[in-house]
């Protein structure tokens, strides 16, 4: 991509106890780019995504987004919890299991961030929520609670909730893995539309067709490192690394949609 770099991750290392989950991972994401991260379970994809917006704190390494270094103030000193919360909202995050607030309606789920974090007035926050939900085709579901919605609808509410905070990047953590097969497409369509509008996205997924048709770049992770990356068609068509070849062989018959 010829656009400027928006997110720059450098030397991210993460350990859980004695286990090293991520080892010295670098990644640049350009403005408007869609990057897909693939890899076997346990390869560190999800942890890496969570390190990007500091849902997990890496042992070493830094993430910069625009001119902000996560966890640091502009004068270089460590940020406190409040400042970190402020920085974190530059990233939207869509979870595998939606993680909607079960006691709130779809609209309240989407309006919570703008109201409580951005300090937007209630009427305005709700208008914004309805706008985002409508954009995702959920206009008639604004008053429903998560329990009354299908998995695909819940995930689209979750995307609307991320969008309402006006993030610079959206991180997707296997957004279709928890869905029944017939509900996968509506979520992928929503993501495809977002990418088409120029949203910067990092997507951990097993959806190879989506990766091929939407992503600008695919990144393969194994054993806590980025092993190979490139244009999706090259990466999937002519994999060089043996682990990637094995991964693609195992994946294709089950997951290609």
């Amino acid at each position: 991509m010829v656009t400027p770099v928006l997110v720059e991750a450098r030397g991210i290392t993460k350990r859980f106890g004695p286990r090293t989950v991520l080892e010295d991972v670098d990644l640049d994401v350009h403005e408007g780019e869609t990057v897909v991260i693939i890899g076997a379970s346990g390869s560190g994809k999800t942890t890496f995504l969570r390190c990007l917006n500091r849902l997990e704190t890496p042992e070493t390494g830094q993430v910069r987004i625009a001119d902000v270094t996560l966890g640091r103030r502009s004068d270089g000193r460590p940020a406190d919890e409040r400042e970190l919360s402020q920085q974190r909202r530059l990233f939207g995050f869509v979870f595998q299991r939606f993680n909607l607030f079960p006691h709130l309606t779809a609209m309240q789920n989407v309006a919570l961030g703008p109201r409580r974090v951005l300090g937007v007035r209630r009427a305005e926050a709700e208008a914004r929520a309805v706008h985002e939900l409508t954009r995702l085709g959920l206009a008639e579901h604004v008053g429903k609670r998560p329990g009354q919605l299908s998995g695909g609808q819940q995930q689209r509410v979750a995307i609307a909730r991320a969008l309402a905070m006006d993030p610079r990047v959206i991180l997707f953590d296997e957004p279709t893995s928890a869905l029944d097969p017939e509900l996968v497409q509506e979520v992928l369509d929503a993501m495809r539309a977002l990418a088409g509008e120029g949203m910067t996205m990092v997507v951990v997924t097993h959806e190879m067709r989506f990766a091929r048709s939407v992503a600008h770049r695919a990144v393969f992770m194994a054993d806590g490192r980025i092993v190979e990356q490139g244009v999706p068609n090259d990466l999937f068509g002519a994999p060089r690394d043996e682990r990637l070849r094995r991964f693609l062989r195992h994946l294709e018959p089950h997951h290609d949609r």
């Binding site: 919360s85 974190r88 909202r89 995050f93 993680n99 919570l112 961030g113």
Partner: peptide
């Protein structure tokens, strides 16, 4: 996981 959802919104 709901706490992570809040955190991801900057709450």
């Amino acid at each position: 996981a709901l706490d992570r959802a809040s955190a991801s919104l900057g709450v």
